[in-house]
Computed example of a mutant assay.
Amino acid sequence: MATAEMEQRWIGKFQENLGIIRKVAGWTTQELADELGVARQTVSNLETGKSPMTKLQYLALRTVFNTEIAGSENRDLAKVIKTLVDDPIEQELAPSASAVSSDEGASETADANIHMNRVANALEQTSNSRAAKPKRSISMTMQALAVITGALASGTAAGLLTYLIFPGGKSGK
């Protein structure tokens, strides 16, 4: 399977579950939008599927959620992302013999049931453990991500890295 196709599957699976992931993180649509530096409507459109998620949006969202997991040790959030996004994609990459079905209609129904069970289990696991946790600001992370993304997009990454590695301006040549 081509790399671009696999990336699209990851992005699609993440977008499909974005609303659930955001809720497990304990954020409103506006709070997530603020963390990303976008309008609330952008997050809403991604959650409803009105707008397709770009690779850059996917990377930014994964960074935000990974920072939340690391900063607040939100294990429930990590479990939900693993259960709803990572595990299904990994299973697609290495399907077992028992998962292969000759009847596509039955396979699609089974996949839908598995997905709904995963969603229900993930929400059930988190509903009891959603104690009030203090929010940690991850704006520094988002600022760093914005700088890195901007540098990569503008082609100045090499210059920035050279400056950081050799601040005196001498590269040793």
Rank of each mutant, 00 (worst) to 15 (best):
S102W: 13
G71M: 12
A99M: 07
A4I: 05
L59H: 12
E73H: 06
M140F: 09
N45V: 05
T162W: 08
A4V: 09
T162C: 09
A97L: 04
Q8A: 02
I81N: 00
A131P: 12
S139Y: 09
T42G: 11
A39F: 13
T162F: 01
N17R: 03
Q91R: 13
P95W: 00
Y58H: 13
T42W: 13
E90A: 15
V38S: 14
Q8E: 07
K170Y: 06
F166V: 00
E104F: 13
K133M: 08
Q8L: 01
R62F: 12
E47M: 00
G26P: 13
A146L: 04
L123H: 12
L145G: 10
T126C: 11
R62S: 13
L32Y: 14
K55A: 04
R130V: 05
Q15E: 06
T54G: 07
I114N: 15
S96G: 14
Q8K: 07
L46S: 15
T28M: 00
P52I: 04
S107Y: 09
N117Q: 14
A97N: 12
N121L: 12
Q143E: 01
E104M: 09
A153F: 10
P95A: 07
Q91G: 09
G159A: 02
V100W: 14
V85A: 01
A151S: 10
S127N: 10
L56Q: 14
A70W: 05
W27V: 02
T141K: 03
T29C: 07
R40V: 07
Y58E: 03
T54V: 02
K82E: 01
K79Y: 07
T42V: 06
Q91C: 03
T162D: 06
A2W: 08
